[in-house]
């Protein structure tokens, strides 16, 4: 295991039980992702993207193999420890944003820090900082329904950044956006990446993946190709 790896997977398998039948969905994945990398995870439907993402996001644990996240073995952790790891190390970006409708952008972004137990001053200061980073300094007091789709996705990205996670995990981040807004969001991802964040984006859209610096393609539960991009 490389000591600079944010993510280190060795021999990861994931089986599911369907009645009497065992389905082997991930069939031995080895993967290292370094701090500051920008990775796109691609593959045809059914190839195992979601299953792998659930493992990377510490929502699920593997049947076999090991997973080190930021140096800690998370592959055998119990639910409480996993939840703590998720909150500290991972910033999730949802396709549907998952914002709280009656709260302002600032409140939405500060929410993960409430769970983390930060004081009000610290929360507000940090939330303002990340909202500035995503270019929403003049929209902090707006509610989701007063924002455009692209702006809502920016709030969601800011919320993912707020706890300074080791990795941003985005699942089809542009799925609900028109193409102009998608371009805008991908530009934002580029900026976030330049600021030193580690990004893993799951997508089935080739032009979205082209923004990443490394493209990993899954097929039938194994890595089919893993290539640098530009």
């Amino acid at each position: 295991m490389d000591s600079k790896s944010v993510i280190s997977l060795r021999g990861i398998t994931r089986d599911f039980q369907l009645g009497a039948q065992t389905v082997h969905v991930l069939k031995g994945i080895d993967l290292d992702i370094q701090k500051g990398e920008y990775v796109a995870l691609m593959g045809p439907s059914g190839s195992g993207k979601s299953t792998l993402m659930n493992l990377l996001g510490c929502l699920d644990t593997p049947t076999g193999g090991s997973y080190h996240l930021a140096g800690r073995d998370v592959s055998r952790m119990d639910d409480n420890d996993l939840a703590a790891v998720r909150n500290k190390e991972i910033g999730f970006v949802f396709q549907t944003f998952n914002l709280i409708p009656r709260q302002t952008a600032l409140q939405n972004v500060a929410l993960p820090m409430v769970y983390a137990g930060a004081s009000k001053e610290v929360r507000t200061e940090r939330a303002e900082e990340v909202l500035r980073q995503v270019g929403l300094e003049d929209r902090m007091d707006h509610r989701p329904n007063q924002l455009s789709g692209g702006q809502r996705q920016r709030v969601a990205v800011a919320r993912a950044l707020v706890n300074t996670p080791s990795m941003i995990l985005a699942d089809e981040p542009t799925g609900n956006l028109d193409s102009t807004t998608s371009v805008e969001i991908m530009k934002l991802f580029d900026d976030i990446h330049k600021a030193g964040n580690t990004l893993v984006v799951v997508t089935h859209e080739e032009d979205i993946a082209q923004h990443a610096h490394r493209i990993i393609r899954l097929r039938d539960g194994v890595i089919e190709s893993d290539t640098p991009n530009r």
Binding site: A83, F92, T96, N98, Y115
Partner: peptide, 17 residues
């Protein structure tokens, strides 16, 4: 179907309605 990650997020989304 809506999704959540942590229970607290689920609670926040219920309480927002």
């Amino acid at each position: 179907v809506k999704t959540y990650i942590e229970t607290v997020d689920g609670l926040a989304s219920i309480n927002a309605q």
